[in-house]
Structure formats: C-alpha cells, structure tokens
Design a binder for these strands. Structure first.
Lengths: 163, 163
DNA sequence: AAAATATAATTAGTTGACTACATAGTTAAC
DNA sequence: GTTAACTATGTAGTCAACTAATTATATTTT
C-alpha cells in the first residue's frame, strides 16, 4: 500500500479530498452506465429529477435551483436536447426565454431511470453506513462559504502573515 | 433566497454536493491567486509540497502519492515545467524515468508559497469552525470506495430492483 | 419615445480530472 | 539471446465545471 499524501494532510487538503471523492464517484457511475448500456451522462440525473417535478422550466431556473452557472447548464441542456431527451421552445410572451421540458423519449425511459436513481441512492446510503451526519457538515461548510467566500477568508489570513 | 435542489436531496446527491463545494473552493482560490498576482495554479500546491519533501522524484511516484492517474500528472507537470517551476531530466540508469525537481525559480518562491499555503490552511480550519470531524467521515468514505468501488455497489443495488 | 439597465441565452476559452491507447525501455523466462 | 511481460511516460479524446464577453429581448427611467 503506497503513501497517500492527500490523506496525510487531513483538513489542509480538504479541497483536493472532496474533489477526489466526487471524481471517483462520478467516474464509477459513468462506468456503470456504460456497463448497463444506457446512453445517459451521470450529471443529467438532477436535470431529469427537476423536470419531473416541473413540467416546464427555463434554463436560468434550472441553473439557479441546481446552484450552477447558466453557461454550464446551456452546454449540458444542449447535449440532452441533441440526444432527444429534452425539447425546448421559445416562450411566446418573453422571447428571451427557452421553455424546456422532457421529450417523449425521456418520459418513456422514466421508470427505468427511477430504478437507476433509487439504486444509486441506496448505494450511497449503505456506503455511508447509514450515518448521514456528514451531510450536516456539508451544509455547514456551504453555509460558511455563502456567508464569506473562500477567497476572502484566504485573503484575510494572508494579510496577517505577509510582510 | 431561491431553492437549493441539491441541498434538499441530502445524501441522495452526495456526489454533486462534494463536487459543488470543491469546485467553489478551487475557483475562489484561483480568484485569490489572480488578486495577489501570483502566476501559479491552485492545483500545483501538492506537487510543490511533495517536491519540498523529496528532492527528486519521478512522475509515477508523484501520481501515486497524490492518488491521481499519471496522464493527469503528465499534463500538470508539463505546464509547471513550461512555466519554469520544475526541471526534469532523464534518469541515467533507467532511461524511461524522468527525474523531476524544483527549479531555482520555485526555490526562490518557496517562502512566499509557504505563507500562502499556511493562510489557506488557516482559512479552512476556521471555515470548519475548528471541528475536524468531517475528515474522519471522508476517510471512511474513501475506505469504503477502496474496498468496493461505487459502480459495484451501484450495480448490486440495481440487480435487486430491475426486472 | 429614447436611453440606460437588466435579464436570458449563447459562445469561446480555461482548468483539471478521466479512460484508452501508443511508445520506449527494462526485466524475466525460456 | 530472443521473446514476453512489465513499467514509465506520453498522446488523444471525453467530460464537467468555470469566467468573461456577446447578442437579443424586456423593463425602467428620464
């Protein structure tokens, strides 16, 4: 077993640690999707879920509710549309808006997708050993970052030590 | 305050949650580096730290100790070399190996970098409200993922429900 | 009514990870 | 001493996020 420098650093490499875990999970998920030959990206999960709840929704609304920038969403939604999972049409009242909804292809696939997501959620639940207390920690971190962005925190520490 | 769908989903969107936090932190860090006009990528942090401890080291060793694939490291180390922070030369005994070490430019910069990293670590420590228990959770998650990869976990849950 | 501002979507370019494959050199097996 | 297997590195292509700047349309102000 070789050395794990990031683990050794503990909280000091928090950022790297979080990224490493989330990358590991999404790459593994992509691998699984390939195995079961479903033509869907893992990252589309939440878009499908959101559109299941909201018949019609605009790009900006999706971005806001998922906490991403809209340029990120544009790219993702364009891919999903290209693959035939979404349809979008211009709003007749406000012509800047694109109203997005699930295409029939998605609606047909939903029962299958539900099973997949449910399996994913169960896998996470068991991986966490049914201990959900980490979520509270994550809530707190995001709360802190919302209150004072990390670059500000970083900078005020830096101002103390730099000469 | 708009809705936060990912937060609502709790453990079910663990992956997205971890990614969102780590992305937020690294983008904020990059922003800070721009502000103080230092020509360094946040992701180089651990490479510098590792090379501070190990005078000379090969690409594969860096990749292993940081827990990344070597293609990822090749790209990063090439950039760092191009910017003059690293020097590498072929091992005389084993000509496949590239021996990598800090260039003078990096050595001169180290005191400054030390201050920056120290500030970063302090910022994280305070952001966590001095409660480091989240790290234990992360250790456990990585331990679980190492024992059984996520795609396997996902798959065994899926086999139970699919018809 | 015209000008200024705001909003929705888009495009382009950057970063940082990955997998899969290719190449070069080393070591082991026969 | 060849051949086979392994190891170190490199290349190509994919993916998901970002920021910054652009375009088109709406809204507000003067």
């Amino acid at each position: 077993m070789e050395r794990d420098f990031i683990k050794e650093l503990g909280y000091k490499a928090l950022d790297n640690r979080l990224k490493r875990i989330s990358d590991r999970m999404s790459h593994d998920t992509r691998k699984f999707f390939k195995e079961i030959e479903i033509d869907i990206e893992p990252s589309w999960h939440l878009v499908f879920k959101l559109l299941q709840e909201n018949d019609v929704i605009t790009m900006v609304e999706i971005a806001e509710q998922l906490g991403y920038t809209h340029p990120s969403m544009v790219v993702m939604l364009k891919k999903m549309t290209a693959k035939g999972y979404l349809v979008s049409e211009k709003d007749t009242i406000d012509k800047r808006k694109q109203n997005i909804k699930l295409a029939q292809k998605s609606i047909d696939l939903l029962p299958e997708l539900e099973q997949i997501w449910h399996s994913c959620e169960n896998a996470i639940y068991k991986m966490l050993d049914k201990d959900l207390s980490i979520i509270k920690h994550l809530d707190e971190i995001e709360e802190s970052l919302r209150a004072i962005p990390f670059n500000e925190r970083f900078n005020s520490e830096y101002q103390k030590v730099k000469h």
